[in-house]
Design a protein around this nucleic acid. Structure first.
Lengths: 219, 219
DNA sequence: CTTTTCCCGTCAGGTAGCTGTAATAAACAG
DNA sequence: CTGTTTATTACAGCTACCTGACGGGAAAAG
């Protein structure tokens, strides 16, 4: 397995690198996001270990960008920010897992193995809906081959429809997908997002069921 | 998505169950490994949330056994904070993820979504009535394969018939389904709705029982 | 730091289609 | 045949929904 380690802490980085090598994998170690981008562009890795705080920027936007470009390489986030919100943001940004520093090296091994198991021999399954190609893992949609750029909320909503094809999803459920359950919303936000989605996907892809909610159109 | 929750703590269990339900998934909740085995054998789940310490045994051997039998249902382990070695063992035993108690419900959502990403929707159970296929979860009816679009009221009425097959339902009862119990109605609204329903479903699907109400036609 | 860009929540005006009502026809029981 | 219950159709009101526009705010660009 080829692993790219993006970590600026030299002590921790060396420890992680040695551990992974000890497991029989090959490791490239960079300390800056710029370098990481170059390395990823040049070679294909089976796993990226990504620190979120780096000298030349934050890791989260970097990861989002990566996913937006259609890259599906498994990413495990390494973070000192032990706040739950950061962890969730990481997962939502397209990370496959996260580890909070300082972490046990044995735990690193276990997660390494889990990710490897999850992804070996699994090219990303594509869901086809009329002229759309949806890659749930990569969070990407193509329409007639052309990559659509959905915003974060748009994707969350659309993902819901794809995961429950044919099922009617109420506006309350869609709200729950977008917002933490304690946050109130007092306007037609959902309708607006649906409208924006339809403009990108094609009007007929999302069907209104008056008084009940929305559902994916028949393929 | 169908979720099996294996957790003996009643407070935590109830919270998790409610959260998952709020996301639109269906949940079965058991507190013993024996029961879990029965449930898994009887139905197919899309996700299992597994506590490791249960009254009738430990979850780890249970999980290993499950994997040994070739079951690949995604499993997320729920474990107390102080059992780090268990977490590693869990991942090695074939778990897809773990969560440390006490965990934030928002984090549960995120991880649920991560698992659901890989989940390719199993079709919901269908109720068959003559040439109709009824999907209660999706609130959809197909007639000879073609999707019918019922309105909100129509669906509520029809759902009532499907949930009580063969049973005679009075017009008063149907009114109660449509309207809050205090609202009065002074016209033949129910009859009109029945008429509209019959036009969509096929005249013979709903049988009039003069003086008493309506019931579903013989399958 | 300033400028620009983009995302998102809110609002208002417009539209479509569901739904209750009533009028009329049909079915049924005695 | 007569009275009663149910079916069907048409229609108007109203509610849920759609969509373009706007501004605040955050992130990216300069």
């Amino acid at each position: 397995m080829r692993v790219l380690l993006v970590e600026d802490d030299t002590v921790l980085g060396a420890g992680v690198r040695d551990q992974i090598k000890a497991e029989g994998h090959s490791v490239d170690w960079v300390t800056r996001l710029d370098d990481a981008a170059d390395y990823i562009a040049a070679a294909t890795y089976d796993l990226v270990l990504l620190d979120l705080m780096l000298p030349d920027g934050r890791g989260l936007p970097f990861l989002q960008n990566l996913r937006k470009r259609g890259d599906v390489t498994p990413v495990i986030i390494l973070t000192a920010l032990d706040q739950i919100s950061d962890r969730i943001d990481g997962l939502n940004a397209g990370a496959d897992d996260y580890m909070v520093k300082p972490f046990d090296l044995a735990e690193l091994s276990a997660r390494l193995a889990a990710v490897a198991r999850r992804y070996t021999g699994n090219p990303n399954p594509l869901v086809e809906i009329a002229d759309l190609e949806v890659d749930l893992a990569a969070k990407s949609v193509r329409r007639q081959g052309k990559l659509l750029s959905l915003t974060a909320r748009e994707w969350v909503l659309f993902e819901g429809f794809v995961q429950h094809p044919g099922q009617i999803i109420s506006k309350a459920q869609l709200e729950d997908r977008l917002y933490a359950f304690d946050i109130e919303i007092e306007s037609n936000t959902i309708e607006v997002h649906i409208s924006r989605l339809r403009k990108k996907l094609g009007r007929e892809k999302i069907v209104t069921v008056r008084g009940m909610g929305y559902r994916l159109g028949e393929t």
